[in-house]
Simulated assay, not measured.
Amino acid sequence: MKRHEIREKALQVLFQLENTDLTLEEAISHIIEDNEMNPFFKTLVYGVTKKLQEIDHQLEEKLENWSLYRLPKIERTILRLALYELLYMDETPSAVVLDEAIELAKTFGDDKSSKFVNGVLSKFVEQ
């Protein structure tokens, strides 16, 4: 599985957690088979859930005229996933993380999602 597909599946798991009463393991089992769970997927999903408060705190500081919980859920989930990669996974270049997040926003969000995601994440890359 390509990393883009892995990010899509990780996004789907994290989105389920945001919108249902499923446990992490249940959400994962709805999206992938056990034999598909590669190390990159595990790092993303478990990492975001473990560091969620820190990630949300970082996002809140960069959102101008928005609160994190006013954001559409899909955009919030994409931002969390991308920010985890930017802050905690040095092996992926920040430009790749940004491009991937924008693509996810185009696929799963609305017409304005990709520009919004790009604008927020660019503030982290510029630091």
Rank of each mutant, 00 (worst) to 15 (best):
15 F>A: 11
43 T>D: 08
125 V>E: 14
38 N>A: 09
23 T>Y: 05
21 D>G: 12
90 D>K: 09
127 Q>P: 01
61 E>C: 12
22 L>W: 09
84 Y>D: 12
40 F>P: 00
106 K>D: 03
70 R>N: 13
47 G>C: 07
102 I>H: 09
3 R>Q: 12
1 M>R: 01
13 V>F: 11
22 L>P: 04
16 Q>A: 10
76 R>M: 01
52 L>D: 08
83 L>A: 10
29 S>C: 04
11 L>M: 12
40 F>D: 09
30 H>T: 14
99 D>Y: 01
13 V>S: 06
96 V>P: 01
86 L>D: 03
11 L>C: 04
108 F>M: 07
107 T>Q: 14
31 I>F: 10
96 V>I: 15
11 L>R: 08
9 K>T: 04
124 F>C: 05
1 M>S: 08
52 L>C: 01
79 L>K: 11
5 E>F: 08
88 Y>P: 14
83 L>H: 11
100 E>Q: 13
53 Q>A: 05
7 R>D: 14
24 L>W: 07
82 A>Q: 12
127 Q>F: 08
32 I>C: 15
6 I>C: 01
31 I>M: 11
61 E>G: 11
77 T>Q: 09
101 A>D: 00
9 K>C: 07
44 L>Y: 04
110 D>Q: 04
100 E>A: 14
91 E>Q: 15
37 M>Y: 07
21 D>S: 09
81 L>K: 09
47 G>Q: 10
117 V>R: 08
73 K>T: 06
16 Q>I: 02
118 N>C: 14
121 L>W: 01
91 E>I: 14
107 T>H: 15
111 D>T: 00
63 L>K: 10
119 G>I: 02
86 L>N: 03
75 E>A: 06
67 S>H: 11
31 I>G: 07
97 V>F: 00
14 L>P: 03
112 K>F: 02
78 I>M: 11
14 L>C: 03
41 F>G: 01
120 V>S: 02
50 K>R: 04
82 A>H: 12
101 A>V: 02
93 P>L: 03
36 E>Q: 15
46 Y>Q: 06
95 A>D: 13
111 D>C: 10
65 N>K: 15
47 G>N: 05
3 R>A: 04
15 F>L: 15
114 S>M: 08
44 L>P: 12
121 L>E: 02
114 S>W: 10
67 S>R: 14
79 L>M: 13
14 L>I: 10
84 Y>A: 15
86 L>S: 05
126 E>D: 08
38 N>M: 12
85 E>I: 07
121 L>H: 01
50 K>D: 11
5 E>Y: 13
15 F>H: 03
17 L>K: 14
29 S>Q: 06
33 E>K: 15
70 R>E: 09
35 N>G: 04
41 F>D: 05
120 V>T: 03
8 E>Y: 13
67 S>Q: 13
68 L>T: 09
28 I>M: 02
37 M>P: 02
69 Y>G: 05
35 N>I: 15
31 I>T: 13
44 L>Q: 09
48 V>Y: 05
99 D>G: 01
65 N>H: 15
105 A>I: 07
78 I>W: 05
121 L>C: 03
103 E>C: 14
15 F>P: 00
120 V>Q: 02
31 I>V: 15
95 A>M: 08
52 L>V: 13
54 E>A: 07
54 E>Q: 11
1 M>I: 12
78 I>Y: 01
51 K>F: 06
